[in-house]
Design a protein around this nucleic acid. Structure first.
Length: 486
RNA sequence: GCUCCCUUCGUCUAGCGGUUAGGACGCGGCCCUCUCAAGGCUGAAACACGAGUUCGAUUCUCGUAGGGAGCGCCA
């Protein structure tokens, strides 16, 4: 769409001042949390204004871009539910357009060929560093009369040499930098391929992006990009630079921190709603509110309210939100995500309770869906071996009577609901004149093989009648063997 | 080195000249209790430092310190 007739496109958009944002990752890895938050902010900002959200893949670095990374980004966006209205566009599809505008700048003398070798540039940089000044191109080819033979030149943008570039960043406020700090950056390599600072400008211009929301590592690029906009005769968009996200330890987020890719959070058992909610609160707030549905985010979010400082990722709080959503989202919806984890852990759920029932019982006991699945395995497969400590402690001779009575009553029990089952357990305790603990704990171990499980009535319920009876018989046999050995 | 940016509890944050500096996660205690949780109540915990401006600074200004980013024929 943007490849063929940019001029007409610009004209057609001239009178519709819609809010348009874009998320423009480079496909050199997965979608990490920092990128995901930037994408979320772009998404919210567009949705809040009834605007347009664009996804653009910045794949001009042929060396490092991979199709796998593109897919990883697309997967991440989809899992998070960040749907875009346009794209994904690929910069590699637009090389002709970049070449066209490079030529235009050349023709207008706003850019020039540079024949300096990498070697010379490197030495120059070293020299300048040594002198304690900011390394930058010295402009040797700026006014070249004749081109040297046999060298394929790069194209440099002729940056203004005086004056200041001033822009009002939506999150940082006014930022001003002197043109003397900027040098003539390369916009095309010897083979004609364009470089980043040029392609972003061309794309954001052609695509009529009204608000550029991106990581603050781009702050220093912005002034030179603004100069390119002007050289191209375009009005720069509004910029908003959001701070980066630090790891749990306050250091820069890296592979070291493990789950940096968004899909890793799915694998670890987080709901997309939880991650989204966590991410939106990182650097942004609305009074004391902590929980936001996506609809509320759209309603309340404003990029201008985003904080300026980098924030540290806190897994404990993510856990809390994750549990919150497991408890409050419709059980059916949580169950859909839970199913993925049962499959992932190779647990066959065809013979056992419904996943909705699992969710209703387990959601307040675990932090992640991954845990929920693994801790629910017993309801589908029973247990392989008894937890030794739990067995020693609770499957003692004193437990024999309660278990026998339980067995008797449960075999006759038809109403297999938590309430009814609770009645049975209470009846047993009353009949034997013992406390609940004396009945529930042995039963718990008998059913699950361990001393920890949901409340005993729910455990019985989820376990089902047949498996429950088998468990009690097994426990009784264990006690008998123990007595015999004494 | 140079340029730009940042600085409220451990962490995420509220605050927008006068507050007992509020909330959330986490942590401690108590309650509840059949285990583990969940829940309720409750406690400890912060304005980096120094000058100004002002009757009064967490809030405004300037320094200092600390932190971050950028300075690529990467994005």
């Amino acid at each position: 769409m943007y490849n063929s007739r940019p001029v007409e496109l610009i004209l057609s958009n001239l009178f519709v001042m819609t809010i348009k944002t874009r998320f423009a990752p480079s496909p050199t890895g997965f979608l990490h949390v920092g990128g995901a938050r930037t994408a979320l902010f772009c998404y919210l900002q567009a949705r809040a204004a009834g605007g347009v959200f664009v996804l653009r893949i910045e794949d001009t670095d042929l060396e490092r871009s991979t199709p796998e990374s593109v897919q990883a980004i697309l997967d991440g966006m989809e899992w998070l539910g960040l749907d875009y209205d346009e794209g994904p566009y690929y910069q590699t599809d637009r090389f002709a357009r970049y070449a066209e505008l490079t030529q235009q700048l050349l023709d207008e003398d706003k850019a020039y060929y540079c024949y300096c070798s990498k070697d010379r540039l490197e030495k120059l940089r070293e020299q300048q560093m040594k002198e304690g000044i900011k390394p930058r191109y010295d402009g040797r080819c700026r006014h070249l009369e004749t081109a040297p033979e046999g060298i394929k030149p790069v194209v440099r943008f002729r940056n203004p040499q005086t004056g200041d570039v001033v822009f009002d960043d939506l999150v940082r406020g006014r930022i001003s930098i002197s043109n003397e700090e900027l040098d003539d950056l390369i916009i095309a390599r010897p083979d004609g391929s364009p470089t980043y600072n040029f392609t972003v400008v061309v794309d954001d211009m052609d695509m009529q992006i009204s608000q550029v929301i991106r990581g603050d590592d781009h702050i220093n690029n912005t002034p030179r990009q603004i100069n390119i906009y002007r050289a191209l005769g375009a009005e720069p968009p509004v910029f908003a630079h959001v701070p980066m996200i630090l790891g749990d330890d306050g250091a820069r987020l890296s592979k070291r921190h493990g789950a940096v890719g968004v899909m890793q959070y799915r694998d670890d058992g987080y709901l997309p709603q939880a991650l989204l909610n966590y991410l939106v609160r990182l650097g942004w707030s609305h009074g004391d509110q902590e929980v936001f549905s996506v609809a509320e985010m759209i309603d309340l979010f404003d990029i201008r309210d985003v904080n300026r400082k980098a924030s540290a990722f806190n897994t404990d709080k993510l856990d809390w939100l994750n549990q919150h959503y497991m408890k409050t989202l419709p059980a059916g919806e949580v169950a859909r995500h839970l199913e993925w984890h049962f499959n992932d852990q190779r647990i066959d759920t065809s013979n056992g309770p419904s996943l909705e029932d699992i969710v209703s019982v387990q959601s307040e006991r675990v932090k992640t869906l991954k845990e929920m699945a693994s801790q629910s395995r017993v309801f589908f497969e029973g247990y392989q071996e008894l937890d030794e400590n739990a067995a020693k402690k609770h499957l003692r001779p004193v437990a024999q009577r309660p278990l026998e009575l339980l067995l008797e009553k449960l075999e006759a029990q038809d109403d297999w609901t938590p309430d009814a089952l609770n009645g049975v357990i209470n009846a047993v305790a009353a009949e034997l004149d013992v406390g609940m603990g004396k009945v529930a704990q042995p039963l718990r171990v008998a059913l699950t093989g361990s001393g920890v499980s949901p409340s005993i009535d729910k455990t019985l319920w989820l376990m089902g009648k047949q498996r429950s009876i088998e468990g009690i018989k097994k426990a009784l046999a264990y006690i008998a063997a123990r007595v015999a050995a004494m």
